[in-house]
Design a protein around this nucleic acid. Sequence first.
DNA 1: AGGTATCCATACACTTTCGCATGTAAAACG
DNA 2: CGTTTTACATGCGAAAGTGTATGGATACCT
Lengths: 205, 205
Amino acid sequence: MVRKTKAEAAATREALLDAAEEMFIQHGVARTSLEQIARHAGMTRGAVYWHFKNKADLFHAMLQRVRLPFQELVEALDDPELVKKPLEAIRLACISGFEHLERPRYRRVHAILIHHCEVFSDIDPLAMQNEMAEESCGALRDYFQCAARLGQLRNDISPALATQLLQSMLGGLFHDWLRNDGSFSIYEEGSRLVKTQLALMQPHP
Amino acid sequence: MVRKTKAEAAATREALLDAAEEMFIQHGVARTSLEQIARHAGMTRGAVYWHFKNKADLFHAMLQRVRLPFQELVEALDDPELVKKPLEAIRLACISGFEHLERPRYRRVHAILIHHCEVFSDIDPLAMQNEMAEESCGALRDYFQCAARLGQLRNDISPALATQLLQSMLGGLFHDWLRNDGSFSIYEEGSRLVKTQLALMQPHP
DNA sequence: AGGTATCCATACACTTTCGCATGTAAAACG
DNA sequence: CGTTTTACATGCGAAAGTGTATGGATACCT
């Protein structure tokens, strides 16, 4: 059995990516050979080299399956009332993000990107992380500025400062969660932390 | 010239560790060979294998040069008045920690541990990070509990929640700082963030 | 002063991995 | 239905890295 139908070929490609995820998170990116990935998917290296140029190309393809931009999380809420309550919009967007992250594939790939891969050849994971951080940070800032204009932010805290506080808190929580192998629910913990932090930032009643 | 005096031998050992730091942070741990480390220090692999058992042993020795426990930071303050002001103790300890981290060697090694190394053979960087996180987290919790007893913490925020908030914020800031290659001062940014966050947690005047 | 342990360079064998070249049977296409 | 292309498996050469064995010159000790 050699030649497969087009659907089967696409399935083996996905299977290779799945196998790569599991091997990467178990042994690290650098320590897993293309042979191990292929064998774990029930294939040989020939399949890998047919679907991907090399390990960097495979790695890049793996990341493409989990991209989630922050702005889309807010837009997905699709509630016109939220323009009047930007802090609430932030809270709901964070919760939505937590839900996404708890899906196994998202958790695995982000854990790989942050904890299980070094710089190699084509790919610079730190640059990718910076890119994602900058993106969400910019969106956050917009909403905090909106909140400040509406008087829904303590006036002794600038929008920029509020952004940094929340951004750092989210990042720290995210890293803790990944580092502890998802031993707690980032959805529950994150919801509590974000709710508390945003409450602290609101003006006194 | 082969046999060196004991002081010279110790110097070459340090030089090897210095070279390892630079190569690790530049190319990642897995992608740098012992040959590269030795050549960069003006030696050959023979010197490396004399001073260290293998790469994992060298890596471990590199980490031993920068260990800094959180509790010692507080004790180093050595101000008896601080037992009455636990939040201030936390703030000063964080600032002291930031000062340590800005020293180039500390920054380099932590960046390597967090961003430039994968699990390999003997060493599990995630376990090390968890150990360090647990340690500082426990110390933080003690001080927040003390603050709660003294009525210096908002009573709608439990000490555990306050600990998680600050811990996450510090971790996120730390990662951002390392990821951005120290492009901003963690001392200045961190001082502002910690000061603001602690102020938010205090009861209304 | 002589012997020995130290400190490091050099050389060699071995393993691992990569990239490519080739083989091949079935699916896709006209 | 014949031809071409696809979707892999297999095999080979080259390169890199590791661990160790050996050599040698000198600092250190008695």
